[in-house]
Amino acid sequence: MSISLSFHQAAEVNMDFITKKEIDLVALLQKSHCPSAGAVVLFSGEVRNHNIGKSVRYLEYEAHTNMATKMIAEILLAARNRWSLSIAFAQHRIGKVKVTESAVVVITASVHRGEAYASNRYIIDRIKHEVPIWKCEHFADGTKEWGGNCNCAKDTGDVNKHLYEFESV
C-alpha cells in the first residue's frame, strides 16, 4: 500500500511507509527540502552489531502491513497538525536488514529546528511503541530472539497506554 502525501515533495520517490526495499536515505533527504522550512531533521534507526551483550548478525522485521501503514499515516498527520510541519514522513523496512543499514527513517521539516526535532522524536517514539512491527534478532552464535519490545503495559497496566520518551524530554 502506497500513500502519496501532499505535505512531502517526494511523491516520485518510494513512498511506502512499509517497504521491503533498502531505505534510500540520500534520495529521501534530497526530496525533503521545502522553501518554507528552515529546519530538516532526518532520523535513521540503524542495525547495530550488538545487543544485550551479544554479537548481532542481522535483524529480521515483520509487520502487519495494512495496519502499520494506516497507523503511520495517522501519526504523521497528528505530528503535522501539532507542529505545523512542512514535511512529515516515515518509512520502516521489513525483511532482513543488515548491520549499518537503516531499518526506519523519519523526516520532519519545519520553520525552525525546535519543531522539527520535537516532532521527529514524537513520530519515532509512537512508531516504536504502537505500530505493529516486530524485530527478530539473529545473533552471531546462531541463536535468534524476538525482542526489544514495548514493555509499557507492565508499568501502565494497559496495553494501549505507553510511556513515551518524548514526554520525558
Binding site: 502487519h64 526506519v104 512508531i127 524485530k135 524476538w146 519490545n149 503495559a153
Partner: peptide
C-alpha cells in the same frame, strides 16, 4: 482476528 504482540519496531 489478529493477535498483536507488543511492538518492537525501530
Amino acid at each position: 482476528i489478529v493477535v498483536i504482540p507488543p511492538s518492537s519496531g525501530g
